[in-house]
């Protein structure tokens, strides 16, 4: 338990050190205020509109896949630790688990969600309908 207490101190005192350094810097620094200084940097031009806009954020599906893989990795850590005790049983169970996940990865791959620029959905069947 001592080890976890030390980890807690690492977080608390770590924050404190950052805070103290920033306070020291605040005391030492000279401040001169004029309005142009506080506008967002946009290569020297006046900023165009807001930065908090809606933009096409690629890879939201990747975030979901990541979540699944990360949870799975969490399962695999204890599995790797006790692997020697269970032998064949552990191997087969993890094989089934991993294969199911890999099928998922293969599906996402085939659907093109692993591309940065997702291919447009094929609308061939729609076009056919139109022609008919």
């Amino acid at each position: 338990m001592v080890a976890f207490y030390i980890v807690l101190l690492f977080f608390l005192i770590g924050m404190l050190i950052v805070g103290i350094t920033l306070v020291i810097s605040r005391i030492l620094q000279s401040r001169k205020s004029y309005p142009e200084k506080y506008i967002p940097y946009e290569c020297g031009e006046l900023p165009q509109g807001e930065a908090w806009i809606q933009f096409n954020n690629r890879f939201y599906i990747i975030a979901l896949i990541f979540l699944i893989f990360d949870v799975e990795i969490l399962f695999m850590f204890p599995w790797a630790v006790v692997f020697d005790t269970f032998g064949m049983l552990a191997f087969i169970e993890m094989l089934i688990f991993v294969v199911i996940l890999l099928v998922g990865l293969a599906y996402v791959w085939a659907k093109g969600d692993l591309e940065w620029v997702k291919p447009k959905p094929k609308l061939a069947h729609l076009a056919k309908k139109k022609g008919a």
Binding site: L22, S25, Q29, P35, Y38, I39
Partner: peptide
Amino acid sequence: LVKEDIIPEKADKFLFKFAP
């Protein structure tokens, strides 16, 4: 250490300070 640290006017001030 002696340089002014600038917080942009339009920034979310709390999150901006907390990130480091």
